[in-house]
Design a protein around this nucleic acid. Structure first.
Lengths: 235, 235
DNA sequence: TAGTGGTCTAGACCACGGA
DNA sequence: CCGTGGTCTAGACCACTAG
């Protein structure tokens, strides 16, 4: 792990352990350089990292300050694995509904940018939070990237498996979100009526090298799901 | 404008004018240093900026590549003023429904982090795209930051006015998104039925110095709105 | 092995905010 | 005016990718 990421982690720890609030001031760059005995660029890299993750914001001539949104129970879809990071403290569950290796449909081919002879894993799961039906998730994983999946992996956490065991490094994601209407199958799964609204989230996950490896379509229970998205101005 | 932002803009221009596609390779850092006659850190800053805005991704040992999602008509809520940037080519319209200076409600006080004696502007607008009802937007602007608003400003573009005329610099945003149900008033405005679903987006806009200055609640027409959100992995 | 991005240092100077 | 973040350079070395 590079120095600047270690520094970033230690700053996050400090924010959490000192229970710092939105607007609380961090130590100055010069102080941080002394504290961690590193150069200025290392501190700058660490702060840039924290700014990207919406932990802090920097104000020229004034200092760096803690950024914290207050609402709980919101899913941060700006981060990979936002579920685990943002719903910690809630009991999450994933029940396997279907798992098979298959040829990609045209939709999957387009979104994963693959040819029809590339096999994919199809996974359908029903997710619950605190025992309440939460979402129906259908995912397609490129088999050349994710060569093996089984029920245990899929009911635990696919992303932990990818990262910890397969040493796959997700890089970035494209999300497409809209409101849809539930079909009968998914409505039954979520204990709702066909035609009820749903947050329909399509996501394409890319490796660090830019290759898409996971296309997923999630129907969220409209009463159980709420999302946090961080934004910035690039003017 | 700092050098690295100029470099970043020129790279964006090059991407657009050369009609580069997802995965196309940019010049190497060394080449860019020569092209623009700047140091390595300046190029690195420019590329970091472009990466934050999802224009490119960088791959160690390999190069920098263009990142482009293909779908049109999606609103990118990861950027301030995503409407204008992302729906360019579509005809947008904002009809004023209400505009007044008022005392904040408790909800507004909480979200803008202000006391009850701080006045705010309340603005309600009906937005259309290509003549179709698109969203009902209610916004509260801190009067101490935005001292004056009128119908013309509000029906044109509030953000252009803030940035170009008031020289206000937005810094970052918190968005909270969920599915809601329309009340009678907003349903009528959108030509929908009460109880119909809506994308309910609450947003808090902050200045560069961390002060919240705009709290807005938008009800989107569920059939006319779709959103793009970029994400990243910070592992 | 050559090319490319990633990290890091040391140091200089600029721009802004607040007392 | 001082403290603070922002920009920029020059240079060294590391880590990864691909042919």
């Amino acid at each position: 792990m590079p120095k600047y990421k270690e520094v970033a982690q230690k700053i996050i720890q400090k924010i959490n352990s000192n229970d710092m609030k939105q607007g609380d001031k961090l130590a100055s760059i010069e102080e941080l350089m002394k504290q961690f005995d590193v150069g200025k660029n290392t501190i700058l890299n660490a702060l840039t990292e924290l700014e990207k993750q919406a932990y802090i914001y920097q104000v020229r001539g004034s200092g760096s300050f803690v950024r914290k949104h207050k609402r709980e129970g919101y899913i941060n879809i700006t981060e990979v694995n936002g579920l685990r990071n943002n719903l910690q403290g809630f009991h999450l569950d994933a029940k396997l509904l279907d798992l098979k290796a298959t040829k990609p449909t045209h939709e999957v081919m387009a979104n994963l940018n693959i040819a029809e002879n590339e096999e994919v894993y199809y996974v359908k799961r029903l997710r619950s939070i605190e025992g309440r039906k939460f979402s129906v998730e259908e995912s397609y994983y490129l088999k050349s990237v994710v060569p093996y999946l089984n029920q245990q992996i899929v009911e635990d956490s696919i992303f932990n498996y990818l990262i910890d065991d397969l040493k796959i490094e997700p890089g970035f994601i494209d999300h497409f979100l809209r409101v849809g209407k539930l079909n009968k199958i998914n409505a039954d799964l979520l204990n709702l009526e066909p035609g009820d609204p749903t947050v329909l989230l399509e996501s394409i996950f890319y490796l660090k090298n830019g290759q898409p490896f996971d296309y997923s379509i999630i129907n969220y229970h409209y009463e159980e799901s709420q999302f946090f998205i961080q934004g910035a101005s690039y003017i």
